[in-house]
Design a protein around this nucleic acid. Sequence first.
DNA 1: AATATTATTTAGACAAATCTAAATAAAATA
DNA 2: TATTTTATTTAGATTTGTCTAAATAATATT
Lengths: 219, 219
Amino acid sequence: MNLTVAEENYIKSIYKLQDGNDVVSTNAIAYELATKPASVTDMAKKLKEKKLIDYEKYQGISLTAEGRKIALQIVRRHRLWECFLVDKLGFSWDEVHEIAEELEHVRSEKLISRLSAFLGDPTSDPHGDPIPDAQGRISKSQPLVSLDKATARRLEVAGVSDQSSALLEFLNAKGIHLGTHLDIIERYEFDNSVEVKIRNQPAFTLSEQVSKNIMVKSL
Amino acid sequence: MNLTVAEENYIKSIYKLQDGNDVVSTNAIAYELATKPASVTDMAKKLKEKKLIDYEKYQGISLTAEGRKIALQIVRRHRLWECFLVDKLGFSWDEVHEIAEELEHVRSEKLISRLSAFLGDPTSDPHGDPIPDAQGRISKSQPLVSLDKATARRLEVAGVSDQSSALLEFLNAKGIHLGTHLDIIERYEFDNSVEVKIRNQPAFTLSEQVSKNIMVKSL
DNA sequence: AATATTATTTAGACAAATCTAAATAAAATA
DNA sequence: TATTTTATTTAGATTTGTCTAAATAATATT
């Protein structure tokens, strides 16, 4: 299966958004890829043709087994390159995403297997996210972390450790629920506050008190 | 200057073929890039627009100073990645070209400067070809090598060590002159013969006796 | 349930990079 | 020099990935 960079990016986004077993919406993919819904529909037809996604008009999109396999390969490449950039070239974890975004599309089985060996076959990347092995197997048990300690930048809310109604009300008002996807925009050291963003909404800031109590997992 | 991969590949080819100061023909570029002359003409117009090449209809193509600067950056990236693949990942010199061909298009100043440092700022790649520094300066003095010992695959004939008329006649008959570009197709260990190819011509084999006396430099 | 809103798709267009076939220019040859 | 051959360019088409604007479907609201 020979995919273009654009196709790989769609597969990767769908994988990232699909998370559970649910289908992914056209709009969600468009937002993720900073493109337009119409473009997503176009690409969906192509990827369906290639049997990498299941897609019926208006019914959302989900990866086929084959699509998932490819997604895992891309994720593997991305995360291995992130390891390389941090461990070998001394980048900090927040600089590597964009570069890995390009490196991940260099397709060579041999390159990736040797890179992995060179890095000591790591099982998680600098953000703590698991690296699928060559067969696409992903090491389970990704422990939940509180939002104030999370290293990944794309997170999903997986729980709240403080169940006080004040907090829950606050979160509710902010639109934060179980399963909500958050992007970390910035962390402020002086007060450990964190600026986050929910898809399609303006960014806002959470105090350490709040972020301590939001349990998240990385996407 | 933000270039597409296609544009970068054209710039690189023109640089490779321009070598001296002469202009490069449309057909030569088409052959080098395994594309059609009409496509080269199309791209020539775009690159002229961007002031990366000098081009007038039917007059051939040459890089501007700016174009040359970019070409040297691409060559630098390519050769550094080749070093990485050989020195760090244990590839053999003949496997790395294609992979480096992809890696070279990942553009990040910081990535390349750090990669270079990681490799010990090498000044030549695994084929012995010089690596331009960050400012595009290339270490001079590329010593001529006899064809039987050359490690690069794309060579230019730079001299003949045995001036016997028999050899010169033979070379002449084969179409090998000073400045002729040769591609190494295959080396045969059993008799140290080498199969070479001149642009637009069928490949042919040279015995060790002959190749010993042809001095070449890599392109 | 009717209506309004939001999500998605379609239709038609565009830019990049390529191609083929035909036209033209330059070079080589008779 | 006239003619043939080769090199190059043009014209028009194609593919990929994208877009806008309009149409349609699904969902939410009154």
